[in-house]
Design a binder for these strands. Sequence first.
DNA 1: TCTGGGGTCCTAGGACCC
DNA 2: TCTGGGGTCCTAGGACCC
Length: 455
Amino acid sequence: MEAMRREASVLHLDLDAFFAAVEQRDKPSLRGRPVVVGGVGGRGVVATASYEARAYGARSAMSTAEARRRCPSGTAFLGGRFAAYRRTSDVVMALLRELSPLVEPASMDEAYVDLAADSGHDLSVAGVTELGRRLKDRIAEATGGVTGSVGIGTSKLMAKIGSDLQKPDGLVVVPPGSELDVLHPLPVTRLGGVGPATAERLHQIGVKTVGDLAARSLADLVALAGKAHGAGLYALARAEDDRAVVPDRGVKSVSHEETFERDLTDLDVLNREIDSMAARVAERLRASAFSGRTVTLKLRRYDFTTLTRSQTLPQPTDDGRTIAAIARRLLSDAGTQGGLRLLGVGISGLSVYAQGDLFAEDLLTGEPEPLPDVVTAVDAPEPEPEVDLPAERRWWPGQDVRHEELGAGWVWGRGLGRVTVRFEGPLTPPGKVRTLSADDPLLHATDPPDWRTTG
DNA sequence: TCTGGGGTCCTAGGACCC
DNA sequence: TCTGGGGTCCTAGGACCC
């Protein structure tokens, strides 16, 4: 806990329609046009809609099918290029770290900065306003035109509220002392932690604005939302927020899940899905030198009911086959009746301990314990590498490609054994479209282009 | 063609231990 | 014979966030 601040020294940055903005930067033909990034399959959901697409009603979390209905033809529906987003995000986070060592990324496109951690800043309202302006300029320049909205205030709460007030490309400093004037007229749903369920309950007792919320007693809110959440709402409504800006929040779990194009029932097929998901989880675990003790299987049935089953091991593991063997057993116990639309495999209870490290085993348990039978089950083979994908799955909209004769471009669409590619890059004018055979040997998937150098 | 994927945090009950 | 608490771990589910 830290003391409440008297100066506007917390900055919140929110990059505008981030995934779509990166796509428009890298794909000149999409600039100024509606772009929707997200799942492009039958059960896909919108991750980000460009402001042009929002004008037609496309929204985050909407099914892609609904977004297709709302947007005009010519709207680009793209799968995500997360390596490209990550690269751009890293550039932005590095700029933030030039302002202060205390930077807390909240996601790829959002971060808090504690400006008080660097004594060099003028924390007057005029001073932080100028700082915000310069930051926005530097971000746009370093990212090739991605814009961000900045809020600055006396707490994380007020900084985040501020960044939301003038989107996109906004800059709002909430002067110390004016917090309640800004906060109380806003709908309660603007507070972090008030989602659909809490909002519905608050509306039922007549609470619509943050001001309405501030008029309720602590006991009322605890009865309505539980102890921790109720107390949190009570404090936020009064602009009481002493949450610290914390860099490097440790990872607590690693998981992978997948919604299938069609519900699956066949246990053999599902077990193979488990094997490949467990392998990906284990790979990420090892890449970050973590092991975990609790394996969780998540499943969503045909009717969207969702449940989890978990088992905790006596000692941590980072082995894909061990994770898969446990998840397989949890699945066979849970059953696949009616069909499953989603499966997920996750691991938590993470530590830096690595299985097979006898010294660490001694440290942890005093002596190595035998694994339970399930862990040594031999029915989980080493997951197979990705084999030849059908053309429909090999190419996906938005993907970066290179044709040995036609040059660099990206996939607009595919189907019926063909793939349509637009040949252009971040620094070229809008390019030409060509339709090629999906198995054209001259066409290859590539890494994302560099927006600073790629013509 | 309804409803993604990656997470975090909280609650609550039962087991188990002291 | 009757009657305890507190603390921690595990499991399951739910709300929420981006």
